[in-house]
Design a protein around this nucleic acid. Sequence first.
DNA 1: TCTGGGGTCCTTTTCCTT
DNA 2: TCTGAAGGAAAAGGACCC
Length: 394
Amino acid sequence: MDAFYASVELLRYPQLQGLPVVIGGARRRPDDALLQRHADLPLAEIPVADFPLLKDYTGRGVITTATYAARQFGVGSAMGLMKAAKLCPQAILLPVDFDEYRKYSRQFKEIITEIAPVMEDRGVDEVYIDFTEVPGGQRDGGRSLARLIQKSIFDATGLTCSIGVAPNKLIAKMASEFNKPKGISIVMPGDLQTLIWPLPCRKINGVGPKSEEKLQAQGIHTIGELAARERDWLIEHFGRSYGAWLHEAAWGRDERPVVTESEPVSISRETTFERDLHAVRDRAELGAIFTALCERVAADLQRKGYAGRTIGIKLRYDDFKSVTRDQTLPHPTADAATIRQAAGQCLKRVDLQRRLRLLGVRVGSLVKAGDVPPDPSKQETDPHEHTALLFPDD
DNA sequence: TCTGGGGTCCTTTTCCTT
DNA sequence: TCTGAAGGAAAAGGACCC
């Protein structure tokens, strides 16, 4: 299989091109006021000096993404905004706008599937493409097709896009990062030793911070060093499944197909509070948030046409430790009150003395709403069961 | 001044049944 | 009735990704 990995870059203010810009989870939306003040101007003409700065931000949140100019200062995705403000106070801070991203995401995927229909969705800004059967796909090692895709996306959306071309998904993903932004990188099977082996193991999609640390403790830093280890040695130190996978990955082997359709496994909603809350002292506030989360999950389920049997909660304490509890019901549900009832039972099984920073509600074991069998117990349900339960002493 | 939100997948533990 | 093995499902946690 020949695969592309394509990812688009999103930045909607052209005048900020080349400047350090951070987009992050600002719950106060710094550019609402900005846009209001300049309601008469096109986005491109808003003066740079009027954009809000990272150093003026107070509150919780992390960076979703940052421009390359901002990354020079050491800031990057998932970093806390307060920490980033120390490294690069002069960076411009923009709020995330997921509705807008989804709109562009849909557009750019539509353009790709028109050209190459075998596409796997990997989130808002990334996809895999199997171009084995695309006419002209093999020309110039895939470069002409990659150029066509880039140009079509740019013409329709103004977005730039990086593309990696390789014999499989694993290598294509790594290749796509060689030449950002706007790059096209082609990696052939014979390029493994020269292009892939010198890279740090962390560049493998599936090796995160924990595994990197473990590998480094064993003196393994590059993919080449990983490839040099015996398969059995890796299995011994990293487990049967992960160890064997590491070995395959280091040798550039990956047989996973491009998957064009998939069903969701779970649907959830969670929220981090602006300040830590206490189950007793902030009970009313917490109860309202809890109910709202259940309602949002139920609405998501209904809108997407699913119901689920496993209801779960997630709590994060003030020390950032998380716990989860879940409970499997006899029948799938998409009903807010039923979800809240079950989630309330889960809440009774956790320590509520400590301060909380996050609460989440999840529904798993999903089935298509049309496939839900009629619930025989519905008739005989005691109405009191639907009385919302929040805390043990409720 | 810490550290989002929405997911997937895997491993380990626990519990229930036979 | 007790004990233990075995196996499956459910529960809990954690790593990872975008």
